[in-house]
Computed example of a mutant assay.
Amino acid sequence: MTGRHAPETLIARYADGSLPDADAWSLEKHLESCASCAGRVSGAVRATAAGAVLADVRDAVLAAATPAPAEAPPPRTPRLLWAAAPAVRGAWLPAVLLVALGAVLLAHVAGFSGARSLLLAIAPVVPVAGVALSYGRHADPLHELAASTPSAGLRLVLTRTAVVLAVSLPLLTLAGLVLPPPGGPGAAAWLLPGLTLTLAALALGGWLGLRTATAVTGGGWLCAVLAPALATPDGAVARHLSDQLSAYVGGAATQGGWAAAAALCAVLLAARRTAYDRLERF
């Protein structure tokens, strides 16, 4: 395209089906915000043989439609549920419950003193994994249809991310509150790290793809927190894990660093928002 509008040659090739997919997608994206070009494309398509067939189909549909009394506009809730449903189905929600209940059982049944520290170490990667499992062909049987709608791209990813956070944050924080404190960080100390890792995965997803980005961020966190504690020669895993978490999430200065990192990731995500327009589209 040249200037602010699509040239006639581009529109003609689009109408007769000879325009490459990448150029056709670019033109369709332009049409979402340009009524003038949309009208020209519509006229070009109507002038082709396919346009006559589409006109006949349209007339038949209008003829078969019967007048109906005025009704209230349909509620928006079903659309929201359709967009958010993959974020709360499948294996992810049982996994969240398993993490929360497992930590409670370790503390109150098995008597493991480091149950809260273990929960705080795992909790930040739970929403990251939920985001990876709620978007893409592997998660949504209607992904191809969803990816072709105006609500696709980053808007759809953020909708499902919000659902993942709304489910995992209160469940895991509540589980942390009922665990005996080990003297380390509090039950809510993981919230900012979890939010930051989720935003970092979304920002990296524009370059690496969503599943790879979540593997990098979630795996990096687990290696940084769990590996040193598990490798301790004296076997005091609970104490070393509590010390590790105090260094990573404890204190106002550390939490302030996580907040700044979350803001930076949000800025990067906003700057790369168009990368999600074609993420896993084809």
Rank of each mutant, 00 (worst) to 15 (best):
L222Q: 05
A224V: 14
A224L: 15
V225H: 01
L226Q: 01
A227K: 03
A227W: 13
A227N: 02
A227F: 14
P228V: 06
A229Y: 10
A229H: 02
A229S: 14
A229Q: 06
L230G: 11
A231H: 01
T232F: 01
P233V: 08
D234A: 09
D234K: 07
G235W: 08
G235V: 10
G235P: 10
G235K: 06
A236M: 07
V237W: 01
V237F: 12
V237M: 08
V237C: 02
R239G: 11
R239F: 05
R239N: 03
L241K: 02
D243W: 08
D243P: 00
Q244C: 04
Q244V: 08
Q244T: 05
L245Q: 07
S246K: 02
S246Y: 03
S246Q: 15
A247C: 04
Y248E: 13
Y248F: 13
V249G: 01
V249A: 14
V249I: 15
G251V: 13
A252T: 15
T254I: 15
T254M: 13
T254C: 12
Q255V: 10
Q255T: 13
Q255F: 09
G256N: 10
G256V: 11
G256Q: 10
G257L: 12
G257K: 10
G257W: 11
W258E: 00
W258R: 04
A259D: 09
A260I: 12
